[in-house]
């Protein structure tokens, strides 16, 4: 017997799988470091989110408890993924890794612009 919840969970798993797979394929196919950064960071957020939601539907132990856990996982993912991507991209840029030649527009100055305000002093 397959229940509706199991079918829905399978669909969500497949969606998550598809986006994660596409992210990996993008990683291989894209031409340079910066374009490659795009594939895995985004695919993971949507992919892992759907997988976490699929888990909510099938893991026993109270749907509210598991849902809260899944939502926490998704929230942390959305908080941490962009920071990792940002740090890698920034490091690559200041390390002088050249973008691919299809990159025609570059509005980013090579030298830092303006005065560094050093951020706000701590509390």
């Amino acid at each position: 017997m397959t229940s509706g919840a199991e079918i829905l969970a399978s669909v969500l798993l497949l969606i998550g799988l598809a986006f994660t797979l596409l992210g990996s394929v993008g990683l291989v196919r894209f031409p340079d470091f910066y374009t490659r950064m795009h594939a895995p960071t985004k695919a993971t957020t949507l992919g892992v989110s759907s997988m976490a939601l699929a888990a909510v539907l099938v893991i026993p132990g109270g749907i509210v408890a598991v849902l809260m856990k899944a939502l926490t996982i998704i929230a942390f993912l959305f908080l941490t993924a962009p920071i990792g991507a940002h740090m890698m991209a920034r490091a690559a840029r200041s390390g002088g890794i050249a973008p691919c030649e299809e990159t025609r527009i570059d509005e980013m100055p090579t030298e830092p612009v303006g005065e560094d305000d050093g951020g706000h002093p701590a509390g």
């Binding site: 985004k42 959305f78 993924a81 991507a85 991209a89 980013m108 303006g114």
Partner: peptide
């Protein structure tokens, strides 16, 4: 960054 297709690389120092 989370919106696919765009990725924040840096912020101007000022």
């Amino acid at each position: 960054t989370l919106t696919p297709g765009t990725l924040t690389v840096d912020i101007a120092k000022d």
